[in-house]
Design a protein around this nucleic acid. Structure first.
Length: 111
DNA sequence: GCAATGGCCCATA
DNA sequence: CTATGGGCCATTG
């Protein structure tokens, strides 16, 4: 069965450990190149199952949360991350140096 | 097939 | 720091 792009994105989301986050560009790189970042955002927008796929663990390259988080407003994403002990800096940006998950490296180590 | 959409990224000013 | 313009890509209507 050939998986479409969105499904590839969702599969990657399940690899992100609780308390960690990845960026759109990281996912994009895993699927080909950084230019896919926008398509990744679109995939998350169409996330059919937020319970199974932790779309809240995806932030932009600066660690900022999405403005129009689709499920419960922007506050919801922040709450979920806080509940997972995700670390933030004083500007409400995720501490990528602490909570960033090198998913590309992880995948390689799994091979 | 075309046009619009999007939770992006990058360089530049 | 903000603002803008350009680019790229998959999905959707």
């Amino acid at each position: 069965m050939v998986m479409n792009f969105n499904q590839e994105v969702y599969n990657l989301l399940r690899l992100i450990p609780k308390g960690k986050v990845v960026t759109y560009s990281q996912i994009a790189l895993c699927l080909g190149n950084v230019k896919l970042a926008r398509a990744v955002g679109n995939a998350l927008h169409n996330n059919p199952n937020p319970k199974l796929y932790p779309c809240h663990r995806v932030v932009n390259r600066k660690g900022e949360l999405s403005k129009a988080f689709a499920f419960g407003g922007s506050g919801a994403q922040m709450k979920m991350l806080v509940d997972e002990n995700t670390q933030f800096d004083r500007f409400n940006r995720v501490r990528l140096d602490i909570c960033g998950f090198d998913i590309e490296k992880f995948i390689k180590s799994q091979n």
